[in-house]
Amino acid sequence: MRRTWQRHINKLRWVSLSIVFLMLILLPFLHLYQTYEAAHAYDLLAPDEKAIYDAMERLTAPFVSDPVTDLNALKGTTWSGTLFGLKLSDPLAVVGQSAAGLTIYWPFLLTALIPIAVTLVLGRVYCGWICPATLIYELHDNLAAWLRKAGLPVSRRKLDRRLKYLVLAAGTIIAAISGTMVFAAVYPPAIIGREIYYAIAVGGFGAGIVFFILTLAFDLMVTRRGFCRYVCPGGALYSLLGRFRLLRIQRKVGQCNDCAKCNVVCQFGLDPLRDGFGQECNNCTACIAVCPTDALTFRVAFKDQPFQGPGHLGHEYRRRQENRQADAHSDPGEAA
């Protein structure tokens, strides 16, 4: 059987995650380069600063004529940033900020329109394809898998997935009452972007890194991918936006053999084996990549399919078929 090309999409996703993360590391260096350039003091730089200057100059020289102004087209983080001159913001930032100020600041809302539109069509793709924290959490999850294999009882619990909607609502209310943007302090991608910048360009980590390490401990000790599944307010917002997404992963029941690898690999603890994707699927395609019979594919549809029964290549289906045939033969009314 020729295998579908869709199982390679997961590799593309890792490339995307890595590019975003590397960009977040590169940008502080670009900022340092800009400040060295603006100071007109190459001779006064320390040797390691000179190394940064030379490397960044070599990297950007083909693209910019005046680094001090031109490189400002590439700034910020995934929380809110400028990507080649286009201002983009996380929808959660808009929600939190509107709540904190009790007004809508339209120029800021506009910067979130593209992410919102993408989420409406493709679902919660930010979580699986862009979020810089996802990269760390997924690698961290692999570590947890090794520890589990070594016999340690790590991340075994299951919590209620609706908890994160509660966090989103509570955060919005607290922002409105306190007049302060609270999501920024507890939203891992915002923290990661900031902390990388602090570590490289300012020196030392900020306060957010402590919170992030706590989330890693939570994932390891309490529940697998726990923060993304049960707590993250951004994930909750993206899930709500992606509820009626157009592009969905669906199961072809005729090709499924009930091996349940998809359920094991699903980072968000969904249930592809029984057609249970729902609004929280982030189209990460890990299940497509792992499916040995190519039973999972992308489809354009507004709704998930209801449970289609056991896969036609699995034991359960064959047993039922045999039972049915046996019933048919033994039934005298049918035979007559």
């Binding site: 400040t35 930032a93 600041y105 007049g179 302060t180 943007m181 920024a184 915002a190 306060a207």
Partner: peptide, 25 residues
């Protein structure tokens, strides 16, 4: 007003050519 508007994205510090802008812990 400032505290309710600011989303703590850090872009102001990233464009500051004089590295005058620092961030509170």
């Amino acid at each position: 007003d400032y505290l309710s508007r600011c989303i703590r994205c850090g872009k102001c510090g990233e464009v500051c050519p004089n590295r005058a802008i620092k961030f509170f812990r």
